[in-house]
Design a protein around this nucleic acid. Structure first.
Length: 402
DNA sequence: GATATTTGACCTGAG
DNA sequence: CCTCAGGTCAAATAT
């Protein structure tokens, strides 16, 4: 009861008592693979939901373009690619299987689109920063990535996702500007990077757009590879796998819940800032692979980020490893939380930041621009921001969306 | 032993 | 008013 949310009279929670020891989740690495293909959710959730919903948004997104009539994802990409930042058609290193491609397009990418679209509604701020790769980004990973090495990250290992990301980014940026100028009051900032975890990437390139895409792309590849490798074909990347940590943005988060969301195929994890006074929460959707599909922040940290120092200050020390954030100039901390942030509209949480596809580190980026985001507000309701935003294009069929 | 994660149940809100 | 889904809590478990 003391809890903010309502006290749940959950005295009766002996549920666990009778439960046998649950091991972790039933999702072996391979499930990641299969999952997308088969379309059945890992959680046994709804297979049916998977397909249509996600795709729609994408289509919608493209629909913005006159040429949107592309039939295949590739076409879409190509069409989009016309843009300056465009990249050549992707070749999935891993993806020899067509399914892979489908999955990419069907799953994360789409989600990314959502995010993008969402941004339209929401206020977006300085995409560049968002996409910037945090100093903390594990360089080792970046360097380690074969793709990274390639001079042309953009083209070389680009995957659909990457392409999409680029396209999306461009579109978003355009919309951004428009929106920003038009509405500076909004508050949600969205970081979209369509992609996956570990970004590895490479900001090397310079354009924000590219950064983003690159980021995603590399990541994506890596991730997939690892996942796949671990199980079937094994590429040779013993390394790593996806992050298990919730997104390190420099703050300490504690997971307090996980649920399968109807609209999405991926489970959503709920995290709370461990800081005593901080009520910031964030929701992370991750694919089976562990890739982060979306991150939604709620609230603003009123405290400083815990020092990454291993000393861990009080709450701070991020157990998980937040080193990256230290330097981040865009510290959300206290970033004028509310002052300008809330026009007064929103009643719920302070602001929500949505990061699509970003890997954990990506989030950082997005997180890093909280201030910009701080506008929050209106996003209507924070949570819905993501979904609601889609409407920009067309709204997806989120079947279950009410 | 402490802390973090997992997971089912419960509560709230929206349609 | 009912139902569904999202969000949160807290016990159990794992590290």
């Amino acid at each position: 009861m003391a809890e903010s949310s309502g006290g749940r009279g959950r005295g009766a929670a002996p549920t666990g008592a009778g439960q046998p020891p649950r091991s972790t989740i039933p999702l072996p690495p391979r499930s990641a693979y299969e999952y997308p293909f088969h379309g059945d959710a890992a959680a046994g959730g709804g297979p049916s939901e998977v397909s249509p919903a996600p795709l729609t948004p994408v289509s919608s997104f493209f629909a913005l373009d006159p040429d949107s009539e592309f039939q295949s994802f590739t076409q879409l990409l190509q069409g989009a690619m016309n843009s300056p930042a465009g990249a050549p058609p992707p070749q999935r290193p891993i993806g020899e299987e067509p399914k892979e491609a489908e999955r990419d397009s069907g799953g994360e990418v789409e989600r990314g689109e959502e995010g993008v679209l969402g941004q339209q509604n929401v206020e977006i701020t300085q995409p560049p920063q968002i996409f910037t790769v945090p100093p903390g980004l594990s360089p080792s990973r970046l360097l380690g990535s074969p793709r990274f090495s390639s001079p042309d990250p953009g083209n070389f290992g680009m995957s659909h996702q990457q392409v999409l990301a680029q396209v999306t980014a461009q579109a978003v940026q355009s919309q951004f500007k428009m929106h920003n100028e038009a509405e500076c009051s909004s508050s949600l900032s969205v970081a979209m990077a369509t992609s996956l975890t570990q970004n590895t990437s490479s900001p090397i390139n310079a354009t924000p757009t590219q950064e983003m895409s690159t980021l995603t792309s590399n990541t994506d590849n890596n991730t997939f590879e690892s996942a796949e490798g671990s199980h079937s074909e094994q590429r040779s990347q013993p390394t790593a796998l996806i992050i298990e940590k919730p997104a390190d943005d420099g703050y300490n988060w504690r997971k307090y819940g996980q649920k399968m969301v109807k609209g999405s195929e991926y489970p959503r994890s709920y995290y709370k800032c461990t800081h005593p006074d901080c009520r910031v929460t964030k929701k992370i959707e991750r694919s089976v692979d562990g890739q982060i599909i979306a991150i939604i922040y709620r609230g603003q940290h009123k405290h400083q980020r815990p020092q990454p120092n291993k000393h861990a200050k009080g709450v701070g020390a991020s157990p998980s490893g937040s080193n990256e954030w230290n330097e981040n100039p865009g510290i959300p901390v206290d970033s004028e939380p509310g002052s300008q942030a809330y026009p007064g509209n929103f009643s719920r949480s302070d602001e929500t930041m949505v990061a699509h596809s970003a890997s954990e580190r990506d989030q950082e980026s997005n997180y890093g621009t909280p201030e910009q985001l701080s506008g929050a507000s209106d996003g209507e309701e924070t949570g819905d921001v993501e979904l609601g935003t889609d409407e920009g294009g067309d709204n997806e069929p989120d079947p279950k969306r009410r």
